[in-house]
Amino acid sequence: MRLLYALLLLLVPVLGVYTFVTADQHGWWFPDNVSTYGPSIDRLFYLIQAMVAITFIGTEVLLAWFMYKYSKRRDDRGVFSHGNHKLEMVWTAIPAVLLLVIAFAQMGTWAEIKFQKGFPDGEFSMDRPIAEVVASQFDWRAIYPGEDGVIGTMDDLENPFEFVVPVDEDVVFNLRSRDVIHAFFVPQFRLKQDALPGHTIPVWFNATEEGVYDLICAELCGWGHYKMAGRVRVVSRPEYDQFLADLDQEWFSNGMEEVQ
């Protein structure tokens, strides 16, 4: 009986580690990364995983072993101990060091992703974002600045549902919401940011592979939250320019016909 319980407790780390190790084969693991800062996020994940795995396996195995060893039927008494000062110091100090390592290891990446003073300053920057991505119940649209390069003017170009960006370039865009809180999430970019009504939030990423990616709304925004899907299309530079030209054509002609 006591063996059964000990094995049961032991099963958790064993199967737990097994699942994590084989998860990749089942597709229960990260979707492929296609952004420049993705790898440093993944590296952090693995660093923490290593530390956590050691503590996890260590503590769980000890627990199972103690439960087995000390539940043997015996007539004598247990160890009469109220603790051990040195031991307390040791097991406070070691995790403290580990935790500090974890804390410091991530600061650089965080600053890179989110600190505005570190934002890219190339063709697209906080002053000249590539577009404004606007969320509303339950859809997405990308608003590109027209000729004048300024968003919020008459020549803005609006593309519903799909956000098109050039590959291998630092892309800065403004995130807005018209109604409730939504969130911009593309798993392959390792990027998530809430869209906050009343605020304009600058966001950046650099996608390294062409393709079409699901844009997922990651913040509960009402009954239609589950279907608030959009798309991010990463294309080559020429394709991107072509896309903008087509969009301009579409809007420009429509607008002029109405005016005349």
Binding site: L63, Y70, S71, V79, E88, W91, A103
Partner: peptide, 29 residues
């Protein structure tokens, strides 16, 4: 982030002390 990471420390102390309690006991299952 820093304060959150640090909160794991007292939790760690608790976990290790529970293990210490079981160690050398006469456990009734």
């Amino acid at each position: 982030m820093v304060s959150t990471v640090m909160i794991a420390l007292p939790s760690a102390i608790k976990v290790f002390n529970w293990l210490g309690t079981l160690w050398g006991g006469r456990i009734r299952l």
